[in-house]
Computed example of a mutant assay.
Amino acid sequence: MLNSFDILINGHQFKKLYEREYDWVMKKYNLKKIEIEILYFISQCGEHNTAKDIAQIQYISKAHISNSIEDLSHKKYISVIGDSTDRRYMHLNVTESASPVIEDIEKVREHLLDILFHNITEEESELMIRISKKIVDNISEELK
């Protein structure tokens, strides 16, 4: 029988919750899950705003990124700007018209965190975050 940790790292239960919570955003803005993830990433990434950065940090395939960038650009949610020193790189920035979308994404993310950390003390939450960071670092190191 699977224990709670097995269920957690498998991710299916979280995926189902994630899809349920984001469903209204996807419908409202005609976005795919991957487009929401990429748009949110671009809104938070600072200078790590290239397709290569998304692929390396988010572990999303280049094909998915390319298609999503094209769709998000057509919807006027992101702008694509060539790098001034290296023309191979294109920098991605959110546009003003993406602001309501990002606000709704942030509402969903906040609600998901409320669900995930319900009945969890601040100390438990801080410990979980520290342990999660170590696990992510371990996985990243192994995948190099």
Rank of each mutant, 00 (worst) to 15 (best):
M1I: 05
M1S: 08
L2T: 09
L8Q: 08
I9L: 08
G11D: 04
G11N: 01
G11F: 02
H12R: 12
Q13C: 09
K15F: 05
K16G: 01
Y18I: 00
E19S: 07
R20H: 12
E21P: 03
V25E: 07
M26I: 07
K28N: 06
N30T: 11
L31Q: 04
L31P: 02
K32D: 11
I36N: 05
E37I: 03
E37L: 10
E37K: 11
I38H: 06
I38W: 05
Y40P: 00
Y40A: 05
Y40K: 07
I42Q: 05
S43I: 00
S43Y: 06
S43Q: 05
Q44R: 12
Q44H: 11
Q44F: 00
C45K: 02
G46T: 01
G46R: 03
G46D: 03
T50S: 15
A51T: 06
A51I: 03
D53S: 14
D53M: 04
D53K: 01
A55Q: 12
A55L: 02
I57A: 01
I57P: 05
Q58G: 06
I60G: 05
A63F: 13
A63Y: 12
H64T: 05
N67C: 06
S68H: 07
I69C: 15
I69G: 02
I69A: 04
E70Y: 15
L72W: 08
L72Y: 09
K75C: 03
Y77P: 03
S79N: 14
V80Y: 02
I81R: 15
G82F: 04
S84T: 07
D86Y: 02
R87S: 14
R88Q: 11
Y89T: 02
Y89C: 02
H91V: 02
L92S: 02
L92V: 00
L92Y: 01
V94Q: 06
V94S: 06
E96M: 03
A98Y: 03
A98L: 01
A98T: 00
S99K: 15
S99Q: 13
P100I: 04
P100Y: 03
V101F: 04
V101I: 13
I102E: 07
I102M: 06
E103S: 14
D104Q: 11
I105P: 10
I105Y: 09
I105D: 08
I105N: 05
E106L: 13
K107I: 07
V108S: 10
V108Q: 10
V108T: 13
E110K: 15
L112D: 01
D114I: 09
L116S: 12
F117M: 12
N119D: 15
E122A: 13
E122R: 11
E122H: 09
E123N: 11
E123S: 11
E124H: 10
S125F: 13
E126D: 14
L127P: 00
L127A: 14
L127I: 04
M128Y: 14
I129G: 00
I131Q: 14
I131G: 08
S132D: 07
K133I: 06
K134D: 13
K134Q: 11
I135S: 09
I135N: 06
V136Y: 13
V136R: 12
D137K: 12
D137I: 02
D137Y: 05
I139T: 07
L143G: 03
